[in-house]
Amino acid sequence: MKPTGKLFTIGLITFWYSSNIGVILLNKYLLSNYGFKYPIFLTMCHMTACSLFSYIAIVWLKVVPMQTVRSRVQFAKIAALSAIFCASVVSGNISLRYLPVSFNQAVGATTPFFTAIFAYLMTFKRESWLTYVTLIPVVTGVIIASGGEPLFNLFGFIMCIGATAARALKTVLQGILLSSEGEKLNSMNLLMYMAPIAVVCLIPAALIMEENVVGITVALAREDLSIVWYLLFNSALAYFVNLTNFLVTNHTSALTLQVLGNAKGAVAVVISILIFRNPVSVTGMLGYCLTVIGVVLYSEAKKRSK
């Protein structure tokens, strides 16, 4: 790879890390520390930004070729994926109100476990016995981390598990529903179609479940204009998480992406502890490390089984 190509890839990975970790930390700050306790409205802001920026990137800037929805059946499939995607993001944001980022990331690392379960239940796809064995430390690590988490909250834990399971379900369903050549969409085009559907679903949910959230947000903005900038910056970051993930996938190998993804969770944990100074226990950190080791072994087992 040429030096300029290396610099571009390093810059891309840095931006990917920054946007991923930044949106998690800012979500935590807004929902927990700042006191903006409206995760559904926050998710709606994210999806609105994703709708707008996706359209600009694909239709105007031609970042990727535009792919069209070819039938009502395909649109229905995209809508179903959008609903699951919404459930995942909302549940994840709710969990950040009650759990520290470090523990949230530990639970989120169990995604391969749920992916393997849903893949088996929905497609009867069996992995090698070694792949299933590697899932044992993934789950065991979270159990240990849960027992050693000083700020453990049952409701937050359930929401985090729900977000992780929904994320895995979306991955499996996406492979099933959009498997034919005529229906396949790259992640950026899929986001462009899913995000507006998500906004339509989230508007009534926010108005009903988070009563007077618009009025409260306006009142907060009059008292402290920084909330507007927080929401705008956070929403923009939510889009760039998806954009940079797509670009990093295209500019690196699958193995590199797996290694970077595993390391990203660890970096997020360290940074969140330094910023929010949430208490951590040796047991909790050992549990998280065991989960990460399990995820690495799972990735390696999957690679060898192909």
Rank of each mutant, 00 (worst) to 15 (best):
G162W: 10
G162F: 14
G162H: 07
G162C: 14
G162R: 05
G162Y: 10
A163R: 00
A163E: 00
A163K: 01
A163I: 03
A163W: 00
A163T: 03
T164Q: 08
T164S: 08
T164I: 11
A165C: 15
A165D: 13
A166Y: 00
A166H: 00
A166I: 01
A166S: 10
A166R: 00
A166K: 00
R167G: 13
R167L: 15
R167D: 11
R167S: 14
A168N: 07
A168W: 04
L169P: 05
L169W: 07
L169N: 03
K170A: 12
K170Y: 12
K170W: 07
T171E: 14
V172N: 00
V172T: 06
L173P: 01
L173T: 03
L173S: 03
L173W: 02
L173F: 08
L173D: 01
Q174A: 12
G175P: 04
G175R: 01
G175I: 05
G175F: 02
G175V: 06
I176T: 03
I176L: 04
I176G: 00
I176R: 03
I176W: 01
L177V: 09
L177N: 03
L177G: 03
L178N: 03
L178G: 02
L178V: 09
L178F: 04
S179D: 08
S179G: 04
S180P: 05
S180C: 05
S180M: 04
S180E: 10
S180A: 11
S180R: 04
E181W: 09
E181M: 12
E181A: 15
E181L: 13
E181H: 13
G182C: 15
G182P: 14
G182H: 15
G182D: 15
E183G: 10
E183N: 13
K184D: 10
K184W: 12
L185T: 12
L185Y: 07
L185C: 12
L185E: 09
N186L: 08
N186W: 04
N186I: 10
S187K: 09
S187F: 07
S187G: 11
S187A: 13
S187V: 12
S187Y: 06
M188H: 02
M188A: 07
M188V: 13
M188D: 02
M188I: 14
N189G: 07
N189A: 09
N189I: 09
N189K: 08
L190D: 00
L190N: 01
L190A: 04
L190I: 06
L190W: 00
L190E: 02
L191Q: 02
L191D: 00
M192L: 10
M192T: 05
M192D: 02
M192G: 02
Y193K: 11
Y193W: 14
Y193R: 10
M194N: 06
M194D: 02
